[in-house]
């Protein structure tokens, strides 16, 4: 089953075509890497898929809903986590969980159960009443991810999720992502850190509003005859500059 299908999705701002007829699909439980340089159009594309921006033309379904007609339904079925902002630093761990549970309409009894379950999975029972601002970055990120998938979304958008954390925490974080994907949650990662991209099942690279490469890391390495994602990215970016 496809969780995202996009067909010739386009967004123009005046004369400028930010996203130019992109078509792709993402399967359920897949970890999909959505890459591109700043200004390549990935933020605009992601805004359309999350219902924050109306496309100029083209079609897309997210979690089975149309992105023109069923924006509110889509929002209930997706989660979102950004590196910069996800949790309120001046609220405690349990207050943050309570808040997001409330936002997504989780019933009080379910929420209590989920909260204690989540805290014990993360080993955060001891700090449940601690302000999030005083937690180490790695803990915050794991908590932010858990909160983002607390309402069992079909699909979760992660924006540069592991920038700046130490290598062990980073791997623990990817293990959490793998685990969620294993349970059937689809993961949509936007990033411009290429080594982060290597952890994805499949990757798309955008340049100048178009998808310039799409495939598994191995397929891309063979197609571009490059050793890693970084080298592929450099090839694509250089190509688009001269074009």
């Amino acid at each position: 089953m496809d969780v995202i299908t996009a067909d010739k999705l386009t967004k123009r701002f005046g004369d400028f075509v930010a996203v130019d007829q992109i078509s792709f699909s993402v399967k359920q439980g897949e970890i999909f890497g959505f890459l591109g340089a700043n200004g390549a159009g990935k933020t605009t594309a992601m805004r359309m898929l999350t219902g924050l921006s109306r496309p100029t033309s083209g079609q897309a379904q997210v979690a089975g809903f149309d992105i023109y007609r069923d924006v509110e339904k889509i929002k209930r079925r997706i989660g979102y986590m950004s590196q910069k902002f996800s949790l309120y630093e001046d609220l405690t761990v349990s207050e943050n969980i309570e808040f997001y549970g409330g936002v997504y309409g989780i019933k009080a009894r379910d929420l209590r159960l989920k909260t204690s379950q989540l805290l014990s999975e993360l080993g955060l029972q001891e700090v449940a009443r601690t302000l999030v601002g005083s937690l180490p970055l790695g803990w915050k990120q794991k908590l932010a991810f858990s909160v983002a998938i607390m309402h069992d979304p079909a699909l979760v958008f992660l924006d540069e999720p592991t920038g700046g954390v130490d290598p062990i925490t980073r791997r623990q974080f990817w293990e959490m992502i793998y685990q969620a994907a294993d349970r059937g949650v689809t993961i949509f990662v936007t990033t411009h850190y290429m080594d982060e991209a290597e952890y994805c099942d499949r990757i798309s690279m955008m340049a100048n509003g178009r998808i310039a490469a799409l495939g598994t890391p191995q397929e891309l390495r063979e197609q571009f005859q490059a050793p890693d994602m970084n080298a592929i990215f450099l090839k694509i970016a250089r190509g688009s500059q001269t074009a």
Binding site: R171, E175, Y178, Q179, D182, Y199
Partner: peptide
């Protein structure tokens, strides 16, 4: 093929010291 299960199983393997995801 199944990375998540692979990680669990490799960690159960007696000669293993440590196992971490590393790219794909």
């Amino acid at each position: 093929r199944d990375r998540f299960r692979l990680l669990q199983d490799v960690r159960q393997w007696p000669p293993t010291y440590q196992a971490f995801p590393f790219g794909e």
